[in-house]
Amino acid sequence: MSIRTSLARPAALIAALAAGLALQTTETNAAPIETALVAGGCFWCVEADFEKVNGVQEVVSGFAGGTVANPTYKQVTGGGTGHYEVAEIRYDPDVVSYAQLMQLFFRSVDPTDAGGQFCDRGESYRTAIFADGPEERQIAEQAKAAAQAELGQQIVTPVLEDAPFYAADSYHQDYYKSEDLILTRFGPRSKASAYKLYRNACGRDDRVRALWGNDAPFVGSSS
Rank of each mutant, 00 (worst) to 15 (best):
E161L: 07
F165K: 03
A168E: 00
E161I: 01
S170L: 14
S178W: 06
G187W: 14
R189E: 15
E179W: 09
S190N: 10
T184A: 06
R207T: 10
K196T: 12
F165W: 03
K177E: 05
R204P: 04
E179D: 13
L197S: 12
L197V: 12
F165E: 04
P188H: 12
A167L: 05
R209V: 07
G187T: 07
D162L: 00
R189N: 11
A194E: 08
A210I: 07
A194L: 07
K191G: 04
P164D: 01
F186N: 14
Y175P: 00
Y176Q: 04
P164G: 04
L183C: 11
A210L: 10
P188Q: 13
R209H: 09
D206H: 12
S190F: 09
P188R: 14
D169V: 09
R204M: 05
H172I: 00
R204Y: 12
A192W: 06
R204H: 15
R204G: 03
R185V: 10
T184H: 11
C202A: 09
P164L: 07
L197K: 11
E179T: 11
A163F: 03
K191W: 05
A210Q: 13
A168N: 02
D205L: 06
D169I: 12
L183Q: 15
H172C: 04
P188E: 12
L211H: 09
D180Y: 05
Y166P: 00
Y198H: 13
Y171H: 14
Y166R: 00
W212D: 05
R204E: 11
Y195N: 00
A168M: 04
K177G: 01
I182H: 06
A168V: 03
C202F: 06
S190Y: 08
E179V: 08
P164H: 06
E161G: 06
Y166F: 15
G187A: 12
C202M: 08
P188M: 14
P188F: 14
E161C: 00
L183D: 13
K196P: 03
G187L: 13
K191L: 07
L211N: 06
S170D: 15
G203C: 06
C202S: 07
D162C: 00
S170Q: 15
S178T: 02
F165I: 01
G187C: 10
A163Q: 03
P188K: 15
K191M: 09
D206A: 15
E179N: 12
A210F: 03
W212C: 07
L197P: 00
R209K: 15
K196S: 09
L197I: 13
D162F: 02
S178M: 02
D169S: 13
R199E: 07
